[in-house]
Structure formats: C-alpha cells, structure tokens
C-alpha cells in the first residue's frame, strides 16, 4: 500500500484511541489523521491548510452526532481533486436511508463500527489486508 495519509472523521475519543493503538499493533505505516466533524475534515481536504499528500483513504462515522457524513461525501464526490478517495463508512446505528445515500455516493464499504478493543484490531487487520491487496494510482 502507498504510505499515504488516512483521514478518520469521528468524535468518539475511545474509538480514536483504540484505532491509534490498533494501527500500531498491526504495524500500519500510513499516517493517521483525525477530524472531529465534517467541516474540520473539509478544511483538511480543501483550501490552503489541506493535508499533503491528500488522503487516498477515509473512514467516516456517518451517524455520529455533529458529523454530517453524507454532505461531506457529496462534496468530495463533486471535487475534481478529491473524488477518487476511497471512503469507508462505519456506523453503529441502523439507518437505512443514510446507508442508501452513502451507497449511492459509491462508498467502498458500509460497515458496522466495532467497539471493543479486540474487535477494533480485528476490523483494521482485515481492512489493512484489503488496502495492501489493492493498487492505488501514483
């Protein structure tokens, strides 16, 4: 996998902490970046303070309070520089309408959000294997 930034849009401190630990336990080399809501994420993707290199992978908790995930994905899909980002959506709430909206915006996967430490390691282990098995453009 290309050593690129991975941007996670989430505001759950425990999930973020467990994700950082899981990345180091699994040995994922990419740089992890976090945004606590959609507007912070957008400012990391767009404008003079954007992340460089731009992330090729994003993970968004679509049902977290204060995160308008669908709006963010929509903006990404209409931006020439950003539209190719692989977006993985996680949620621990069953919201059929949002799931449908996300799938219509061609996310790479809609997944149940793991909560226990062990579950989070297993989750990122599978995702990391997948990220390593696919090609990215240069």
């Amino acid at each position: 996998m290309v050593a690129a930034n991975i941007l996670i849009v989430d505001n759950c401190k425990i999930f973020i902490e467990n994700t950082v630990n899981a990345f180091s336990q699994i040995g994922i080399k990419s740089t992890l970046c976090f945004a606590e809501n959609d507007s912070k994420a957008w400012s990391m993707l767009h404008g003079k303070n954007k992340l460089l290199p731009l992330p090729k992978i994003m993970l968004i908790d679509i049902n977290a309070e204060g995160i308008n995930g669908i709006d963010l994905i929509n903006k990404i899909r209409f931006d020439f520089e950003l539209k190719s980002i692989l977006i993985f959506v996680v949620s621990n709430i069953d919201d059929v309408e949002k799931k449908c909206d996300a799938l219509n915006l061609n996310i790479a996967g809609y997944m149940h959000k793991p909560s226990e430490k062990g579950e989070i390691v297993a989750f990122f282990s599978i995702l990391n294997d997948y990220w390593n098995s696919i090609e990215f453009s240069r």
């Binding site: 790479a108 997944m111 294997d129 090609e135």
Partner: peptide, 27 residues
C-alpha cells in the same frame, strides 16, 4: 478496489480470500 491479477493461482486464491474477508465486514 483495483486488484492486479496475480500470476500464480495460489496468490489468486489469497487475493480472493482477502476480498471475502473484506466483504464479510460490509453491509
């Protein structure tokens, strides 16, 4: 995902196994 077809069948089986694991996470 963009997957390059592996040249050996053994590696091909592994690629498909990785895909299967990923699909098992997805709704």
């Amino acid at each position: 995902g963009y997957i390059l077809k592996p040249l050996s069948f053994e590696k091909f089986i592994n690629s498909v196994a990785t895909l299967k694991n990923f699909w098992s996470l997805c709704e």
